Computed example of a mutant assay.
Amino acid sequence: MVSVSPPFRRLLLAVVVALLTVPTLSSCVGARPSHSVDLVPFTSDGCSLFPDGTFADRDRWCDCCQTHDIAYWQGGSADDRVRADEALRSCVQERTGDADLAETMYLGVRVGGHPAFPTWYRWGYGWPYGRGYEPLSKREKRQVEKQLSAYAKGHPQGYCVERNGEP
């Protein structure tokens, strides 16, 4: 079981407080262009800025993060994001039995993954910056399916296995 130390909890709380400026940042995000844009190919880095597992089992919850990356890459509504973040928390909890770890990861993605942040791991990172929370159209859903199919063909083992050089 992985436990979270009190200093780490204080650090996480400080990060949460510092990032409460998200609503202000959201108002600065420009409107989405009216012309049609294409989705960039899917990429995953596992648990962005967080370990993919323990020292003993380095990929213990990595696939939870790759599934979460798929949701973040394609984006969608604010409710879609909540469901993706809750699914990550549940997956990590199931893998580890550690509610504190699962909750820490959940809080991290809730704060750090807002679409207003110009990061590679923000909500909707497969679309140009500024999309925000917007449900996917039928055309966009077809793009998602096509890109995920191409990713699966090129990466049949997925990120977590490939990064370790496993067959």
Rank of each mutant, 00 (worst) to 15 (best):
V2G: 09
V4A: 02
S5I: 02
P7M: 03
R9D: 12
L11A: 14
L13T: 12
V17K: 11
V22F: 13
T24W: 14
S26D: 11
C28I: 04
C28P: 02
C28G: 09
R32D: 01
R32E: 02
H35P: 00
S36D: 07
V40W: 15
V40R: 15
F42Q: 09
S44T: 05
S44C: 11
D45M: 11
C47P: 07
D52W: 06
G53L: 00
F55R: 13
F55K: 11
D57H: 15
R58Y: 05
R58V: 13
R60M: 14
R60I: 08
R60N: 06
C62Q: 07
D63P: 07
C64D: 09
C64S: 08
Q66N: 07
T67W: 08
D69K: 03
D69C: 11
I70N: 03
Y72M: 03
W73L: 12
W73Q: 06
G75L: 06
G76M: 00
D79V: 08
D79K: 08
R83E: 10
R83D: 06
R83M: 07
D85F: 02
E86K: 13
V92E: 03
E94C: 15
E94L: 14
G97Y: 12
D100A: 10
D100K: 04
L101H: 05
E103M: 06
T104N: 02
Y106F: 15
G112C: 10
G113P: 05
A116F: 10
T119F: 14
W120M: 02
W120F: 09
R122Y: 03
R122F: 00
R122V: 00
G124K: 04
G126C: 11
G126L: 06
Y129R: 04
G130N: 04
R131C: 02
Y133A: 05
Y133W: 09
Y133D: 09
Y133E: 01
E134D: 13
L136D: 04
K138Q: 15
R142T: 05
Q143E: 05
V144T: 06
E145P: 01
Q147T: 03
L148A: 00
L148N: 05
L148Q: 07
H155N: 10
H155D: 06
H155G: 06
G158C: 10
Y159C: 04
Y159A: 01
C160M: 11
C160W: 12
V161T: 14
R163C: 05
N164D: 09
G165A: 11
G165F: 07
E166A: 04
E166H: 11
E166P: 01
